[in-house]
Each structure stands twice: as structure tokens, then as C-alpha cells.
């Protein structure tokens, strides 16, 4: 039993964090909004050069052979920075599923990877409108019983507005040609669902932490009644409440990642648990952060909403709190004897 990260891991997290601190500033995110081009190719390339995009592919597939725990930590930082590019989606949803795809499909995906830093978008009933399809080389499309691989040129799609301007979504109109399969569907579908929950959970704890940090800084700066509003207890307690929620959501994300790595039979439950806790933390972070900012928090000008908007979207897709609750409830009532004190690990 060692529920600790290694030193390498901390260093690694720091590398990502400092890259994103330089490359993914609020103003660069706003530039993307105004140009309606939130996918910044140069930032994508820099991230790609670090090896992050293919970090969890095996070494023979050109990756770093990194595990899901490392990935989750990395994705948390992407949440913290509000990174628009779909790096988390690429690594968690596409690359991490690779070993499960049938050979032919695997080769298609691999050849796209090998041809440079290309992106493969993904759509699923739990997150039906793919991100940045305009920048993708191909789309993986899951429906209720099959999945398809479609090259971008074989797709007709139109843009869909997201409430988070840095999420450029599309609706698919028609498909000219695809490779379709239902081989191994149950396994793949359950794997992608679990990863969707976990990925959004990791992003959300990063986002919640960012909102908390922005709020802590703001309340030190803003004075009313002749002193910083951060000295008022009502404000302190609102922010402390966020800190508590984040603290207890974090280990659920790390545990869920470890369960995927460990092929734990309860990994789907653990991923749902992570999303459930993280969505609640992020929800409180949104509410209390705006409140602590007063009217400033209600403006387009303040950076807070850059992160809040992303959190709203991520809470909603890949299974919101209500869906996760349902999954947990069903598991609890059908396998109650395998849950609790003796079954945490």
C-alpha cells in the first residue's frame, strides 16, 4: 500500500504546469474566443513536442508508456490552466483505448498518429458533439451498439455554439464513408465511458482549484469597509467550503486512475465516484467564487468565467452528477456486500 506519487511524478506535473502557465494564459484564451479559433496550433505543437499527446501509448507505439495515474495528474493541470485544446480527450479517450480496438482500426489510428501531431476527435452518446472537428484528421463515433472510424473528408458537419467559447463543437450531418464495427463493443463502450468520467473529473478538480485560487487572490485585493473583504468571515467560510470539497474529491480521481491501471473490476464505479465528487466540488467552486467576487464576478471582463464556463460544460458531459449518482446507486443496491470498509482497495 503506497498511495503516494513519486518524485518523478511531481517533477512531471511541474513541467506541464509551467508550460501551460506560459502558453495558456487567460489572454491567450480570450484571443482564441475573439478569433473564433480556440485551437491554437502552436500551443498544440509545443505540448506535442513534450510527448504528452502520446504519453500513454506504449513505447513501441511511439509513446512514453506512462500510466493513467500520471495522466490524471497531467489532466488536472490542463483543467487548472483552462486549456482549450483537446489534449485530455486525445490521450484519455482515444490513445488509452487503442489496445482495445480491432487490428484494422488500430492501424488506421496509428497511421494518423505517425503522420504528425494529428488529432482524432471522439463522439459518444454521453458527449455527442465532438470538439474541434475542424482540426481533426478523423472522428471516432460511438452509438448505442457500434463504433465507426471516419476520416474528416468523409464527414459533413456544422458548427454548434457552446456556452464555453473555447469548446468549438460540431453537429454531424452526414457520413459518406466509414469503417464500422461492433467487435468488442461492450468492453470498448464501458472503457470509454469510464475514461470520460475520469477525464472530466480530473479537469474539474483543476478548474475548481483555479477558481479557488482566483477568489483567494481577489478577496485579498478588494477592500470594503476599510479592509480586505477576505478578512470577513462570511467570505472566508465560503472559500474554506470549496477547499474541503476539493480535498476530498482529489483522492477519488487518483484512486480511479489507479483502478484503470490495475484493471480493477470496480473501475467503472470508481470513475463514477470521481466524477460525482469532482462535479460537486466544481459546482460549489462556481457558486461561491462568483459570490466572493460580487458584481465583478458577474462580468465578461473578469477572468473567473473562463474557467467557470469550462466547468459548466464538463459537469454536464460524460455523465453529470445525476447520471453518476444513478450508476453508484445501482451498484450499491446490487452488490452491497462488496462495498464498504473491506472493499475500499
Amino acid at each position: 500500500m503506497n498511495f503516494n506519487f513519486t518524485e518523478e511524478q511531481t517533477q512531471f506535473k511541474d513541467v506541464i504546469k509551467s508550460l501551460l502557465a506560459d502558453e495558456c494564459t487567460p489572454s491567450s484564451i480570450r484571443d482564441g474566443w475573439s478569433a473564433k479559433k480556440s485551437f491554437n496550433q502552436s500551443r498544440w505543437n509545443k505540448i506535442s513536442e513534450l510527448g504528452v499527446l502520446s504519453s500513454n501509448l506504449s513505447e513501441e507505439d511511439g509513446g512514453l508508456g506512462m500510466d493513467q495515474v500520471a495522466l490524471a495528474l497531467m489532466v488536472e493541470e490542463m483543467g487548472y490552466a483552462g486549456l482549450p485544446e483537446p489534449v485530455a480527450e486525445q490521450t484519455f479517450l482515444v490513445n488509452d483505448l487503442m489496445p482495445l480496438f480491432p487490428e484494422g482500426l488500430k492501424d488506421e489510428i496509428k497511421s494518423i498518429h505517425e503522420s504528425g501531431n494529428q488529432y482524432i476527435a471522439l463522439a459518444h452518446p454521453l458527449s455527442p458533439n465532438p470538439l474541434f472537428l475542424g482540426h481533426a484528421a478523423a472522428l471516432l463515433l460511438f452509438d448505442e451498439s457500434t463504433y465507426q472510424f471516419i476520416l474528416k473528408d468523409d464527414l459533413n458537419f456544422k458548427p454548434l455554439a457552446s456556452n464555453d467559447p473555447s469548446r468549438e463543437l460540431s453537429a454531424i450531418d452526414s457520413i459518406k464513408k466509414s469503417i464500422s464495427s461492433s467487435e468488442n463493443f461492450e468492453t470498448l463502450n464501458s472503457a470509454v465511458t469510464a475514461r470520460g468520467s475520469l477525464m472530466t473529473a480530473a479537469l474539474l478538480i483543476g478548474l475548481a482549484q483555479k477558481m479557488l485560487d482566483l477568489s483567494s487572490a481577489y478577496v485579498l485585493d478588494r477592500n470594503q469597509f476599510g479592509k480586505p473583504i477576505g478578512s470577513f468571515q462570511a467570505i472566508k467560510h465560503m472559500l474554506a467550503d470549496i477547499a474541503v470539497e476539493i480535498e476530498f474529491a482529489k483522492p477519488t480521481v487518483y484512486r480511479a486512475a489507479h483502478s484503470l491501471l490495475d484493471k480493477n473490476p470496480k473501475s467503472n464505479l470508481h470513475c463514477s465516484h470521481a466524477k460525482y465528487m469532482s462535479a460537486r466540488a466544481a459546482e460549489l467552486a462556481c457558486k461561491n467564487s462568483i459570490q466572493a467576487h460580487g458584481a465583478m464576478g458577474y462580468t465578461w471582463e473578469m477572468d473567473l468565467h473562463i474557467y467557470m464556463r469550462k466547468a459548466w460544460s464538463l459537469m454536464a458531459c460524460w455523465g453529470n452528477e445525476d447520471k453518476q449518482q444513478d450508476i453508484i446507486y445501482k451498484t450499491l443496491t446490487t452488490s452491497k456486500d462488496e462495498l464498504g470498509v473491506l472493499y475500499t482497495f
Binding site: F5, T6, Q11, F12, V52, S55, L64, D67, V69, Y254
Partner: peptide
């Protein structure tokens, strides 16, 4: 390419009980 690779090894978090702990 793959600047990170040199810096990090596969992470060794292990959250299961050992035989002795069992």
C-alpha cells in the same frame, strides 16, 4: 521530441494491500 521521457519513470503508486498486510 519526448523531452519528458528522460525525466520520468513509470509511476509506482500501489494502492493495494500487501500479503503481509492481509
Amino acid at each position: 521530441m519526448h523531452l519528458l521521457k528522460k525525466e520520468m519513470q513509470i509511476l509506482k503508486m500501489k494502492i493495494n494491500f500487501t500479503k503481509d498486510q492481509d
